[in-house]
């Protein structure tokens, strides 16, 4: 019995020692927040990103590996607005981590930091998988990223005061470069004004609004409902009357519906990165917007 107790005690000591050695742990639900945390924390942080650009944030399972990572997180950064409602609540109740519960400083919902659009006027599931808090895909507008960066930098400094100065100086540097990049993207994207596009899901609403583009239709008949043949047929008719310039979709969407519509109408279908890692070139936040705008300008030619 005594040796057993000693054994358990030594294991517990080993684990607490490991924890003491570890850096400040950030659990980012989506790649864009993982990338932003890296910009603001660099080597001061150990960042874990729960999903990749190839996964649908609406439909993730609370896998054992995610529970294990949430167990050690000091800060959880998620989009929020019910985007992760199918899995993050489970992580919070299964991981036994009091630091990242709702209402704690270690729980940060990015979408709560910005003004959300497309807040539904009516709430009913017959309207599809709608988000009562508004469209959660805020990362497609670079100005939103700037706002989240400010809050995230403050939160990092608050939770990890030893490195507060480092976070602040990194934030200053990032903020300046980001503002400059926003001016560049707005200049480059000026040609996208009033351009009509067909989307798959309401993934790019913030981008479309930022660039002054127009959403001419969506492949999903209702949010969260996969494209149906009948709906695609009406879209084909609609595009014949008033053609859009492009059909845009995300890496996690099934490309077949977009390709089908493209073949029937001759409108180019283009997969935009949507988030960091969404294609080969979109390796960081800057490249994400460079790539998105470049891809759209390319199909416009």
């Amino acid at each position: 019995m005594k040796t057993m107790l000693k054994f358990v005690a030594s294991i517990a000591m080993f684990f607490s020692f490991c924890q003491a050695l570890a850096a400040f742990n950030v659990f980012a639900c989506e790649p864009e927040w993982g990338a932003l945390a890296m910009e603001l924390g660099g080597d001061k942080l150990s960042v874990f990103t729960a999903i990749t650009a190839l996964q649908d944030a609406h439909r993730i399972e609370a896998r054992p590996s995610l529970i294990a990572r949430a167990r050690n997180a000091d800060l959880l950064v998620c989009t929020g607005s019910e985007l992760e409602i199918g899995w993050v609540p489970l992580l919070l109740t299964q991981a036994g981590n009091g630091r990242i519960q709702r209402g704690m400083p270690g729980y940060l919902e990015a979408s709560q930091q910005v003004a959300r659009i497309e807040i539904p006027q009516a709430l009913d599931r017959s309207l599809g998988d709608i988000h009562p808090g508004g469209n959660p895909h805020i990362q497609t507008d670079a100005r939103n990223i700037a706002r989240v960066a400010e809050v995230l930098a403050q939160r990092l400094a608050q939770l990890d005061p030893q490195n507060a100065a480092a976070y602040q100086s990194k934030y200053k540097d990032f903020g300046a470069r980001w503002q400059e990049a926003i001016r560049r993207w707005e200049k480059e994207g000026a040609r996208l004004k009033d351009v009509p596009v067909v989307v798959y899901h309401r993934d790019f609403s913030y981008f479309i609004r930022w660039m002054g583009m127009r959403e001419a239709g969506s492949l999903e008949p209702k949010p969260g409902i996969p494209p149906t043949p009948a709906h695609l047929a009406t879209l084909v008719e609609q595009m014949k009357r008033a053609p859009a310039k492009a059909i845009i979709y995300s890496p996690y969407n099934d490309p077949r519906a977009a390709q089908f519509l493209s073949e029937r109408t001759g409108i180019p279908a283009v997969m935009l990165p949507f988030t960091v890692g969404g294609n080969e070139k979109a390796r960081d936040l800057f490249a994400l917007f460079d790539e998105t705008i470049a891809l759209l300008l390319k199909v416009m030619q």
Binding site: F15, Q19, S65, I67, A68, R69, R71, A95
Partner: peptide
């Protein structure tokens, strides 16, 4: 009473 170990592999 449940305990989750602080490891990358989930041990509960």
């Amino acid at each position: 009473l449940k305990w989750v170990a602080p490891t990358e592999l989930l041990v509960e």
